[in-house]
Structures are given as structure tokens and as C-alpha cells.
Design a protein around this nucleic acid. Structure first.
Lengths: 137, 137
DNA sequence: GTCTATGCAAACCCTTTGCAGCCAT
DNA sequence: ATGGCTGCAAAGGGTTTGCATAGAC
């Protein structure tokens, strides 16, 4: 959670990184743990989680689909997108028409049968933007 | 989980739907529960969850950011997108260049300070596509 | 009457955290 | 030597489920 200044390269960290780098299946922490444990039988799940967090904070790996909190619901079913405030979590509407063009492009470069997409924006809501501006004064 | 044929309109379901429809904050199940409970003090959390699931299956409400399972990680940090198989959960790469154009558009219609977006595709992976084709024979 | 919906509580999955000792730098 | 790292076990948040009963159709 609190990012340390130096990254110590322990055996656990190195193996986690190596196994993830050579894995092309986008594994979950759990799946990766199973693979890593073949090389380091005593490693704990907590270490895997901690390292995945630290390594992605440092940009050495990528974490897919952020969005840990609770799921949210919308009573409005019309087509529109959402913005999430990175500071307070508030969600706003983005009343854009469906964006197209990249569905066709995506189909061209994937062997999946692509049926749709999910798009969401992130940034700061008006009041958090103001708060943050104050801090930089 | 097993979608029933008929939707019975119980008091609980009606109130959940009404409260969500008039709420513009994209509430979580928990937040909605608090509001609903003002009108139906004996309703249980499980009912709220079950109805949110059923109502979104029926298209009466929308569930934001699907993606319940575990978080997944990618050892490749180059810019690219992902497809999720809706049947088996497998994840593939979509080696598209960053799509732009809609960031500017989104900024034009939102009062948020939009800093970025997340885009992911969904559909069926090659083997699930084949399996599904078999079923329709 | 039938079949779906409910409340309750327990189970569940995934992830994070406190702690005491360990180890890379 | 010091600060980051580890394993363990326990706690945490959010969501789902089994069961018996109630209620909509």
C-alpha cells in the first residue's frame, strides 16, 4: 500500500515476475501462486498478492480491470458511458453516443468472436478537482 | 442464477426498482438497501442482491463494470487491449493501437476532469465459439 | 395449486492486514 | 544496521446460497 523507495529483489519477487512474464494466459493471483509454488514450495499467497500489487505500481506488470469496490447499478438503461472519480469514487454519466469503429478493428486483430465492448472513463469529479487544485497552491 | 420464466412483481422488487430509477448516483447494492429499507424495514440484503441480478438480466436496470471474478495480471506492459470469453472466462490480447478521439468527445459532455479510459472487449474464444456452434446444429 | 420470491444465517470467494522474524542492500 | 520483505493466520468486504416459509399468479 505504501510504496517503498527501493525495490529489493528477493527470490519470491523474482520468480513471481518471471512466471508472470512467461505466462500468456493473464493468470489470476491464485493461478500464478500455483505455478510459483512449484519453484518455491513455501511461498505464501499473501506474498503473491503483495508482489503483484508492488510490481504493478512500479509498472513492471499490468493489472487488468481495476475496480475493486462494490458493484454499482444504474436505473437508466439508455446507452451511455460512465466516469469514475479516482479520488472519491463518485460516478458520473457521459452521455456519448455509442462509439464505433474500433469494434471492427478489434475483430480484425483477434481470433475471438468479439461481440461487444465495455468502455469507461476515469478522472476527477468537479469537487475533487477543486480540492486537488487547492493542494497544489 | 437460473432465470425464471415469469417475473412476479412483489413489493420488494417494485420498491427496489423504483428507488434505483429515481437515484442518479449509481448506488451499490448496499447503498440501495439503505434507501429501500426506509420503505420496507424488513427487507433483507439477499433480496436486494437477488433482485438486482434478476432486474439486470431482464434489462430493466444496468449493472456497471461486470467482471466479478478474480483480478488478472499481465506480464506484458505494452499498450494493448483485452477480450474476455463470456463462456469460459479466458482472456485474449487485442493488439490494437490506442484508440483516440472519444477522450476529447467525452470531455465535451462531462463535468468531470477526464484523464483516461478503460476499454475491454467481450465475446467468445475460438474453442467456445465452436462448442456453441455445435449446440445450434 | 404451482412455482417464484423472501428472510435468515451461514458460506463463499478473493484480497488485505497485523505481527514477529528474516534478509537484501 | 536498517528498512523492506516474508509466512502465518486471522480479518475483511462484497456477494451468493440452502433452507423453510410466504405470496403472486
Amino acid at each position: 500500500m505504501d510504496k517503498p523507495k527501493v525495490l529489493k529483489m528477493t527470490a519470491q519477487r523474482r520468480v513471481i515476475l518471471e512466471e508472470l512474464k512467461k505466462d500468456r494466459t493473464h493468470p489470476s493471483a491464485d493461478e500464478l501462486y500455483l505455478k510459483v509454488r512449484r519453484r518455491l514450495p513455501d511461498i505464501s499467497m499473501a506474498t503473491v498478492y503483495r508482489n503483484l500489487e508492488i510490481l504493478s505500481e512500479h509498472g513492471l506488470i499490468r493489472r487488468l480491470w481495476e475496480g475493486g469496490g462494490p458493484r454499482r447499478y444504474d436505473g437508466v438503461t439508455d446507452d451511455h458511458y460512465h466516469v469514475t472519480c479516482e479520488r472519491c469514487g463518485r460516478i458520473g454519466d457521459v452521455p456519448l453516443d455509442a462509439v464505433n469503429g474500433f469494434l471492427a478493428k478489434a475483430r480484425g486483430v483477434s481470433d475471438f468472436d468479439i461481440r461487444g465492448y465495455r468502455l469507461e472513463f476515469y478522472g476527477f469529479c468537479p469537487s475533487c478537482r477543486d480540492e486537488l487544485a487547492k493542494d497544489t497552491d
